[in-house]
Simulated scan of single mutants.
Amino acid sequence: MTVGAPVWITRARPGALATAERVRGLGFTAIVDPLLAVESLDVQLDLSHIAALAFTSANGVEAFARLSDERGLPVFAVGRATAKAARGEGFASVSSADGDVEDLCALIAAGAHGSVLWAGAREPAGDLVGMLRGRGLMATGVAVYETLERAPSEDTLARLDAPAAVLLHSPRAARVLAAILRQRPALTARFLCLSEAVAAPLSDIAEPGSVTFAPRPDESALLDLLNS
């Protein structure tokens, strides 16, 4: 892509703002117009028999931190961004899978001692608790936030009619965009996805060759696609 080209960031805030900073640092024009919005849930947390915490997103970390002052339990994070968020909230013992939910499950199975509490979205992309139980581990889950769909602005949608890139971090955002593209095809846009699972909802909607996914589920790998 040419220097200064527009890059639409569809992920929810506050993560979208951090991504925008990185996109600008690469010389592109960042358009922050999320397809999703995160809202924390008001829930009661029972940590009396919990030996470790598991997080599959930075949003889960931040929502948990608003609900509890507990920072002494060891944390297992799905990747570096989630691990960074956990350390930023004051957790001292943080292990990162640097991969996907399956990698996180393997990390927890190898290192957890006792019951694990997963804190995450009301509608998670994967079933970490079920996977852990399938390995014979004690695990429970609690929804600490929910993700709501939102409509992008007309100005943002107009950018799809010119050469532009769209960054997609989650299957749900990709499904929202796929619904938009059914009504408004984008002939010149490139859709850059965090993983193959994120790209799947767009496979039958976008123009052939316009959808690409990162070789690993990591934002640095995703941003590398901007220069490919």
Rank of each mutant, 00 (worst) to 15 (best):
L132K: 03
P74C: 01
Y145W: 06
L157T: 03
A189I: 00
V116H: 00
F91E: 02
R175K: 14
F91P: 00
G126I: 05
G111W: 10
T140Q: 15
V176H: 13
V142I: 15
A164E: 05
A151T: 14
E146P: 07
A179F: 08
V166D: 05
T82K: 00
L137F: 05
A174T: 08
S153V: 07
D127F: 08
R172T: 07
D98N: 15
A119P: 07
P124R: 12
A92T: 14
A164K: 01
A112P: 05
E102V: 13
D103K: 14
A162D: 13
L73F: 01
A139M: 05
R175A: 13
L187N: 12
V75P: 00
G111N: 15
A173C: 03
L177R: 05
G120W: 01
A92S: 15
A85K: 06
A173N: 04
L117S: 04
A106M: 09
G88A: 12
A86S: 06
S115H: 12
L148M: 11
L148K: 15
L128Q: 01
D155Q: 13
E154C: 07
T147G: 12
H113Y: 08
E196N: 12
G90S: 06
L192M: 05
L168C: 02
D127A: 02
L168P: 02
E102T: 14
V144N: 00
R122W: 10
L167N: 00
G126N: 15
R150A: 12
G136D: 02
V129Y: 01
A83N: 06
F191K: 01
R150S: 13
P152V: 01
A179H: 09
V116I: 06
R182M: 11
A143D: 08
G114A: 09
F91I: 06
E146H: 14
Y145F: 09
A178R: 07
S153M: 02
L194A: 10
G90P: 12
C105W: 01
E149Y: 04
P74R: 02
D100E: 12
A143P: 01
T188N: 12
A197D: 11
M138F: 11
G111D: 13
R172M: 10
I180G: 07
R150G: 13
G114K: 08
D161Q: 14
A112Q: 04
G88V: 13
A106D: 14
L137I: 11
V78A: 04
L107V: 07
V198E: 00
F76S: 03
M131V: 02
T82Y: 00
R182L: 14
T140F: 08
L117Q: 05
R133G: 07
V176C: 12
A85R: 06
T156W: 04
S195G: 06
A162Q: 15
G111Y: 08
A197E: 12
D161Y: 08
A121R: 09
A81G: 15
I180Y: 11
P163L: 03
V78Y: 04
R182G: 10
T147P: 09
Y145R: 08
M138L: 15
T147L: 12
D161K: 14
M138E: 15
L160S: 00
Y145N: 03
A121D: 15
E196T: 08
P152I: 00
S170H: 02
P124V: 11
G120A: 04
H113M: 10
L160T: 01
D103I: 05
G114D: 04
L137E: 01
D98Q: 11
C105Q: 10
C193R: 00
G88Q: 12
